[in-house]
Design a protein around this nucleic acid. Structure first.
Lengths: 198, 198
DNA sequence: CGTTCAAGAAAGGAATCACTTTCTAACCAG
DNA sequence: CTGGTTAGAAAGTGATTCCTTTCTTGAACG
């Protein structure tokens, strides 16, 4: 009778384990409530801890949100495919990026423009560069260079706009729809738009 | 001595004139401060009026923001060009859209995702449809149909993805950079990407 | 085992901000 | 000119929320 069945052994988290839980809670709050409605208390409650724990790590709400965005980005790395053909690599990479980044751009962009870090002296462009990780989709250069070496494309003769095209369109669709692209759309981008241009 | 020189005749605005000024102030505040940092007072001060005037028109902050977004969208209509060639029409339309909508998509999307209307029962998709005006870029069908009639393209044989391509890319760049596209970029989209595909 | 550190609970201070209320006077219709 | 409407000024209320402080106790480390 001393320990209730409804009280499931209060474990106490530490270090990386705790920090990941805090940042994940922050991200979930961002997705569900949005930046404006995210409060330190709501994050603490979701993470089953108290606000003091948050303030021990981040000086204010903006810092916490920024860290949560970066954590979410880094927790879902996009794998580098190697299928042997440019078409296969592109389909695989775009699919992986689409799934890993679904929602990320929109939430991050929304937070960046809805007031995040306005008074830290960062320009909107700086905030955006930071949350976007200053990279667009990783590994793009790699798969193009491999295709160049195999003789599939001639990097000297293909305009940069063409090389960016598939990734720009995937990013665009992610921003518009907030969910991963349908496989048919990815195939359309590769087969109807990109490949005819190279 | 009764009327100071520093007090430049207090005129009192009414009706449409006043309402436009209020909504313009709301939009400017949205751009500069973002949704989270926009306050009814900041809008009132910017419009040189008082909060009561705002509340006489809109029941709450969300309604004001929504009206400001719609006002901004409707106040900058994109003109329908008619240059005689598909290439000319596209360049003109993309340039006009780029300038009219610079910033609009990003600000509107950010407001939509940063908490706007979360508790009115609208889904994010509904909010987005409303602020985007349920249209992407107007006039697109028109210029394509004219080109079809002139025999420049065959609408039966061109995939829809190709027709959307220029507008998707312009929207993408606007979301990323928040400013009108450089003319060279627009020419690149038309000449290096779109025209080779049709 | 004993020491140290931080997790977690709780309560509250201070500031912000959505929204209201009241009042005066400028504008408009007749 | 007269009366009704509403712009605009000013002050205030109540709720929210950022952030701090204090205290107890579970966990890590030697």
């Amino acid at each position: 009778m001393a320990t209730e069945a409804s009280e499931p052994v209060r474990r106490r988290r530490h270090g990386k384990e705790l920090e990941s839980a805090l940042l994940a809670a922050g991200w979930d709050e961002l997705v569900e409530a949005g930046y404006a409605r995210l409060t330190m208390e709501s994050v603490a409650v979701r993470a089953r801890t108290s606000e003091a724990v948050l303030y021990r790590r981040w000086a204010n709400k903006d810092q916490l949100v920024l860290a949560a965005i970066e954590h979410q980005r880094d927790a879902n790395p996009v794998a580098l495919p190697d299928t042997g053909t440019l078409r296969g690599d592109l389909l695989a990479l775009l699919t992986a990026a689409s799934e890993a980044l679904a929602g990320f751009f929109a939430i991050a962009a929304a937070a960046a423009f809805s007031g995040l870090l306005v008074d830290t002296g960062m320009t909107p462009a700086q905030v955006r560069a930071r949350v976007m990780g200053d990279q667009r989709v990783p590994h793009t250069r790699t798969i193009y260079q491999r295709a160049h070496r195999r003789g599939e494309i001639d990097l000297e003769r293909v305009p940069a706009a063409v090389l960016d095209l598939p990734f720009d369109l995937v990013r665009h669709d992610l921003l518009m729809d907030l969910e991963p692209l349908k496989p048919a759309r990815i195939r359309s981008i590769v087969d109807e738009l990109f490949l005819p241009l190279v």
